[in-house]
Design a protein around this nucleic acid. Structure first.
Length: 204
DNA sequence: AATATCAAATCGTCCGTAGC
DNA sequence: GCTACGGACGATTTGATATT
């Protein structure tokens, strides 16, 4: 590939082209994949970061991870997360009985797992979440793993976003630098619902 | 008031490669 | 060897919300 020098003019042209298409500035992930811009890593190295570059090129709202942008994201995330938990709680209770499904169960002192389910075949934990992309999934799994290293029972990380396939999850699982411990599996919601059929529910 | 959680945005690190 | 970049991905920061 030919060497390219990313001048401010070329960078600004790239940003403006994205804005023309989408009506807003590209996030760092979008910068990475946009054909008229270098990667966010290059910008990091050569320009001192995306935020600094946006500022230098004269854009306003230069940090998409704070302030009003962040507020909007946090609000949506909160609503969606709660909705997901409520829906899965109903399904687990139907399958295993109300008394066998513990929601927001505390373990290791203060930390919580979304669901902790008692069955005749043994206990398991489940954490359901909805990452928009595999990239944000990575970030957030790594955050989760800090607490789940203290979780010793079988644990299912359930990806609720139907656009993420089990194949992608398997690839990610195999490529992790710090592999999951044996008790942890990463499943699509569909495959999770199939998996729990293997557990025998307690009767009344 | 303090803390855990959610998922996204950005920063930081390691390594690979094309062209001089 | 060196430069200028890209790919992959872990770490940190952020704000709304719920619980205590």
């Amino acid at each position: 590939m030919r060497k390219r020098v990313w001048t401010d003019d070329k960078l600004k042209a790239g940003f403006d082209a994205f804005i023309a298409e989408h009506g807003r500035l590209p996030s760092s992930h979008e910068v990475d994949t946009y054909h008229l811009l270098p990667t966010a890593r290059s910008i990091q190295k050569r320009c001192g970061g995306l935020v600094a570059l946006r500022e230098r090129l004269g854009y306003t709202d230069t940090h998409l991870g704070t302030g009003a942008h962040r507020s909007a994201i946090a609000y949506e995330v909160g609503i969606r997360g709660r909705q997901l938990e409520i829906e899965l709680e109903v399904q687990l209770q139907e399958r295993f009985g109300e008394r066998s499904v513990h929601t927001e169960k505390i373990f290791n002192g203060k930390q919580r797992v979304d669901f902790y389910v008692y069955t005749k075949s043994g206990v398991f934990g489940a954490d359901i979440f909805f990452p928009a992309t595999t990239r944000t999934m990575q970030n957030n799994i790594n955050i989760k793993m800090k607490k789940y290293q203290h979780f010793t029972e079988p644990l299912y990380l359930v990806v609720a976003n139907p656009e993420i396939t089990q194949t992608q999850l398997d690839t990610y699982t195999q490529n992790r630098k710090e592999p999951f411990s044996e008790n942890i599996s990463l499943l699509t919601q569909e495959n999770f619902m199939t998996e729990i059929e293997n557990y025998e529910a307690y009767g009344d």
